[in-house]
Structures are given as structure tokens and as C-alpha cells.
Amino acid sequence: MEQHTVSRTKEFLHHIRRNRKVKAGLALFAAILALAIVGPLFTPYGPLEPTGEAGRPPSLEHPLGTNTFTYDVYAQTVYGLRSSLLIGFLGGLIATVIGILIGLAAGYMGGLVDEFLMMLTNIFLVIPTLALLIVIAAYIEYRGIMIESLIIGLTSWPWTARAVRAQTLSLKNREFVLVARMSGASGLRIMVGEILPNMFSYAIMVFILQFGGAILYAVGLDFLGLGPTKGISLGLILQQAVLWNAIQLGMWWWAIPPGLIIALLLASLYTINTGMDEVLNPRLRRLE
């Protein structure tokens, strides 16, 4: 056997650096993240602070104009972007963690545990999530960003669980797992110490997809009026713009920029994801 002198991490980073999709996606995402972090520094207004001027087109003072309620659209967009990113991150993280834990346990333990967990997963898959969300949202009077992330995270894990279970099933009969069993390692130890680390790259990909999914989910909820009762998000801006006929009244600056940012954000995440897929899957990797 040829001895490899390059470590796997190094090789992975090398291919990441060479992959155009990953690079382009990361650059776009970094730009959007930068906008969310430093954007608020460039406006004196808060997202829900009346400026006294209604429906003004973009100008030096209001880079994205103002809306019917005299709010500064730029301020709303950058603050809204912050909360959308936060919802995406938290919601995606919760869904990924739950999905991995359930998939891992079901796949490795098998038998009754598997049957029960997969039944639960299938129930979550088939019940109309939106209807459930409407009910939950209707019962919680005060809804903040955290609650919204939690609701999204708790309802979007099932497909991750199924995919992780399939991965676990194929890993658990690999020889090194059998060797660990013969070495007297407990089931928990094998799941956490042997199988899970081998799914690390897969988990990152899942998280990226869940991140994007959660953002989109939040926009949908906001749009239906089930979003945060307080605060601002990209979805809420869009909802209000549509509700108050922004486009029909010619106030494009109220609807287009937040919509565009959502589209770019999702595009960046999916580009990173397909690029990562190429890096991690040698069959898709092009040799020089």
C-alpha cells in the first residue's frame, strides 16, 4: 500500500480551496454576513423608528427609501437580515442535532427502538407541518425570534433523521464497528465515538441545507402573519410590503431589496452545499 504523506484534512482543505462553487458561495455568504454585522452602523435609524417621511424613494439620507409607516427600509432590511440569519442558524442547528440523534439511535440500536423512532419520524413527516405551526403560533401570544427558531427546528428534523439512519445502517456493519464491539465498547460509545465522527462532513452538509431551509421556512411563516409578534425580519418586511400594496403604489424599494437578499442568501448556501458535495464525493471531483 502506498503510504500517504498528506493528511486527509489537508487534502480536504486543498480541494475546498480549488472548488469554484464553494469559493463563490462562501464569498457571497460572507458578504451578506458582513452586511448583517456592520450594516446597522451606517444608519442612524432603528428598524421600528419613525422617520417622519412616508413612502420616499431611495436618497442619500434613506438609501432604500422609506415605507408607508415612515420607517427606513435600509434599517429594516439590515436588522431584519440579522434576525433572519439568527433564525436560520438556530432553527437549522436544532433540526440537525435532533435529526442526527434520532437517526443515529434508530439506525444503531435497531429493533423496537428503531421502529418507535421511525414511527415518530414518519408521523412528523406526514402531518401537515404548516397546520401544526398555525395552531402552535395561534396559542402562543408572544412570539419572539427564539420561539420561531424553536418551532422551525422542532418540525424540520425528520428527513435528516431518515438520512442519518441510512448512513448509520451502512456504517454499523463496517469492520471497525465490529472490532469496537469485540473490544467491549458500549453502544453509546460506539455511536458517539466511532460512528458519529465518520458522519462529520455529512453533518455539515445537512446543517447548511437545514440553515437555508429554516430561513425559507421563517419567511413563509412571517408572510402568513405567524412570525414574530415583535421585532423585524426579512419575511415581515415582505409581508407588510405586500399587505400595503408596495408594488402597486410604485414603492419597489420596499419589496425588492429584502426579497433579493433572501434569494442571494439561499443561493449562496445551496452553492456551498453542491460544491461541498463535489469535494466530499470523489466521484464528482474532477481531476486536473
Binding site: E2, T5, V6
Partner: peptide, 8 residues
């Protein structure tokens, strides 16, 4: 063979 770390 050309590789990351030189020729094989």
C-alpha cells in the same frame, strides 16, 4: 502520477 505532494 502528479499529486499534491509531488510525483509518484
Amino acid at each position: 502520477y502528479r499529486t499534491l505532494t509531488g510525483y509518484v
